[in-house]
């Protein structure tokens, strides 16, 4: 398989005073890949993701996202990525349609495109009769699915998902991952952080961070072989035990 590199990270480091949150990490993510980013709380995975999204300045190192350099072309990166945070990223006091229109609008979609996207999205999520409902009144699982669709509304090359399924029931998580697969299949690179080990199994490749460093990076199957574990949970626990940092 000869695919384009979507994210390329070299020696990326972030320090907060004496504390090194992310310590010289290096990896590549291919176009259309589902890249799982794992780590205990405080391992540095959110900080790493935030640097790639342009929310935080790297202390040193370099990275390209969607072919653009993080240091020199942050505005072009912004146009080619989607982002969904662990906090719910839609407005509760706007209806589903208004949320879509707003996010479509700030990404510069035309009225025609926004209308088409809205219809398409309501149709795929079976929400036609909820179109005018306030987002705040919907169940969390639905909100997360809408938030993901909204993050994809401008067809980004790369989408960053920060613990997108936190607090969501298993059935909805399954449905959520179906949406992720569809997006990846259509060529979008999915960069996802998670705490659920079953979700780690769904990823094409998994990267496990411990104390700001990458301790393992491979396909779930090969990681399981390497660490002689039946599932990803075993792999993760073996690695996470090495951590000297406490929760933070």
């Amino acid at each position: 398989m000869n695919r384009e590199v979507a994210i390329s990270v070299r020696e990326l480091t972030k320090r907060f005073g004496d504390f090194t949150a992310v310590n010289a990490i290096t990896f590549d993510v291919m176009q259309g890949e589902i890249f799982g980013f794992l780590g205990a709380n405080g391992a540095g995975k959110t900080t790493a993701m935030r640097m790639l999204c342009g929310l935080s300045f790297p202390t040193s190192g370099s990275a390209t996202v969607g072919g653009y350099d993080l240091a020199t072309d942050p505005e072009k990166i912004k146009r080619s990525i989607g982002y969904m945070s662990q906090k719910f990223s839609l407005y509760d006091d706007l209806s589903i349609v208004e949320n879509i229109r707003y996010y479509g609008g700030i990404y510069g979609l035309s009225d025609r495109e926004i209308k088409d996207k809205t219809d398409q999205l309501l149709h795929t999520l079976h929400l036609e009769d909820q179109a005018k409902a306030m987002t705040g009144s919907l169940p969390l699982g639905w909100k997360q699915k809408i938030a993901f669709s909204v993050a994809m509304v401008h067809q980004p090359k790369v989408v960053f998902l920060d613990e997108p399924t936190g607090g969501v029931d298993p059935v909805t998580r399954r449905e959520f991952w179906t949406m992720i697969y569809e997006a990846a299949h259509a060529g979008t690179t999915v960069f996802v952080t998670t705490h659920y080990m079953d979700e780690a199994e769904y990823c094409d490749r998994v990267c496990i961070m411990v104390d700001g460093r990458i301790e393992a990076l491979d396909t779930p199957d090969r990681l399981k072989d390497q660490f002689k574990s039946a599932n990803m949970e075993g792999v993760f626990i073996q690695l996470a035990r090495k951590a000297t940092r406490t929760d933070g």
């Binding site: 342009g54 929310l55 505005e75 146009r79 982002y83 945070s85 407005y91 996010y103 700030i106 510069g108």
Partner: peptide, 9 residues
Amino acid sequence: TMEVILVSP
């Protein structure tokens, strides 16, 4: 939602 705004162009 501020993060989403800041990530956007």
